[in-house]
Amino acid sequence: MDSGKLVNSSEVSGDGPSTPYLTIAIASSALFDLTESDSVFRTQGEEAYAKYQRNHESVPLNPGPAFGLVSKLLALNKGRASPLVEVVLVSKNSVDTGLRIFHSIRHHHLGITRASFSRGRSPFVYAQAFGANLFLSSSESDVREAIASGIPAARLIGSSAQNTLEKTEIRLAFDGDAVIFSDEAEQIFAASGLLAFEQSEVESKDQPMAEGPLHGLLAAIHQLQSVFPSGACPLRTALVTARAAPTHERVINTLRSWGIRIDEAVFLGGRPKGPFLRAFGADIFFDDQMHHLESTRQHVSSAHVPYGVKNLPLERKPDCK
Rank of each mutant, 00 (worst) to 15 (best):
G68F: 02
S37Q: 10
V70E: 13
P83R: 00
L224A: 07
S137H: 07
P313V: 14
I260A: 14
V179D: 08
F130Y: 13
K92M: 14
L314E: 12
L84N: 01
S91V: 12
F117H: 12
H292A: 09
V179E: 06
A173K: 12
L89S: 07
A242I: 03
Q289K: 11
G98Y: 13
F32I: 12
L136A: 11
T97Y: 14
I260H: 08
K5N: 05
G158P: 07
Q207R: 07
F280V: 06
S118I: 05
E184I: 14
Q207G: 02
E315H: 15
N77Y: 06
S118L: 15
S39L: 05
L69S: 03
P234H: 00
V179H: 08
A190Y: 13
C233E: 07
F135M: 06
H56T: 13
T241C: 03
Y21T: 00
F286V: 06
E36D: 12
Q223C: 08
D177H: 12
L293V: 08
N93V: 02
A279W: 06
A242P: 14
A115V: 06
I262N: 04
G158C: 03
P123I: 06
D33E: 10
N93L: 01
V202H: 03
A50D: 15
F286T: 01
S204M: 12
T164D: 02
A220D: 05
Q298N: 10
L314H: 10
V95S: 12
S192F: 00
